[in-house]
Design a protein around this nucleic acid. Structure first.
Lengths: 208, 208
DNA sequence: ACGCCACCTGTCCTCGTGGACAATACAAAT
DNA sequence: ATTTGTATTGTCCACGAGGACAGGTGGCGT
């Protein structure tokens, strides 16, 4: 059940590195942040990184090597003393997940699975706090929603098309024919005054 | 790889119910929110619920049956038209996860695994927004820009492609051949790990 | 000099997209 | 009863996108 992706373990703690060996099929060990670039070049995109180096200078995520390589990587950051603010900082620095250094192996493996799939992983505590924080301040005004002129069915089709689903995928999802999807999309394009599904996606996601 | 927990599927959409059958070992189907109490009594604690009933009255999470049973359950809420605010609302109402109704089976299964383990599951889009909302006070250091791993030329091409320009249009704009545009885009797709220009557009414009 | 890399170009080929003609069934409104 | 709107499906066709091969240039560092 390990992630199919080759895993890069980044820590200068030998004990920790040994613990983490069990998480990947053939995990690779690195000691310094500078190694990120090297291993990315070899196709390693899944990284488990220890945020508590033995000789702490600056936060790891402010290191140039981090910032140069973070875009192409899925990084799960682990801290021995997880702290909400640290978590927010590292996630905002491009990490895909934040967890406890000594979290159960099963949990770590699951987190790696999740971020390998392009999602984000945040522990229950931090996530709860996030939810509470934003709960109080929701803009939520009745602005002209993109879907107002659309029918129910057209909305469904548009929603799926806007996240990149193909016509056939949408058809299967809704239990209709690809031809029907096209018909709905044609109507959507006209009503929203867009030329193709890319423009539709931008409109739906509020770009521009 | 299915969750060990017995899964309760709650939807009045027959097609959807059929699709979701594959998610659990021996999934049980329910149609109305009121059934939550009944099935909880039988030991079902893992629930996948469709937030879009055919006869929409009030939001599902405001139903008495929901509020009476939510405490003992791990609920993954799915919406056909995922909306950040809806997600926040349902999570604050006690759900453990929020996702797209027609998300890939693998994703749904993963989400169920996560919430079965007591964690919370939130999709990348919503989570990103949460992070952005609370980071207004954070230093906002060198953030991970989508263009970091790209070369200068690739950035230009990607930028134009992301707003919907055709390859030929991009070529004319940059004074190069359409073939060259394709070459740059191919490199961009690989580096950013996206399949096509629509996914590229979403990435560039900070969606998901 | 050699290798690496960014940049540029060429030709097939397959496939999804979207437009242009259609048509049918069913509901609610007039 | 007729009209209007929504949802559904059909075929044909032109075009762009993106992959799979291929190549050639110039700069820059060892």
């Amino acid at each position: 059940m390990s992630p199919a992706e080759p895993l890069l373990i980044l820590t200068d703690d030998d004990l920790l590195a040994e613990r983490w060996q069990a998480l990947g099929r053939s995990p690779v060990r690195a000691r310094r942040v500078d190694d990120l670039g090297t291993w990315r070049a070899t196709g390693h995109r899944l990284v488990l990184v220890d945020l508590d180096p033995r000789r702490p200078d600056a936060p790891l995520w402010q290191h140039p090597a981090w910032q140069h390589n973070v875009a192409g990587l899925s990084i799960l950051a682990a801290s021995a003393q997880p702290d909400d603010d640290e978590g927010l900082a590292v996630l905002n620095a491009g990490a895909s997940g934040y967890c406890h250094t000594h979290a159960p192996t099963a949990t770590l493996r699951q987190a790696l699975d999740v971020i390998a799939g392009g999602e984000l992983w945040v522990g229950r505590a931090l996530l709860s706090r996030l939810l509470r924080l934003v709960d109080t301040r929701l803009p939520r005004v009745g602005l002209a929603h993109w879907s107002t002129p659309l029918t129910e069915r057209e909305r469904e089709v548009a929603q799926l098309a806007a996240i990149g689903d193909s016509n056939l995928t949408i058809a299967d999802a809704l239990g209709i024919t690809e031809r029907t999807v096209k018909a709905h999309l044609k109507a959507v394009f006209e009503k929203l005054q867009v030329a193709d599904r890319l423009q539709l996606a931008l409109r739906v996601h509020g770009v521009r």
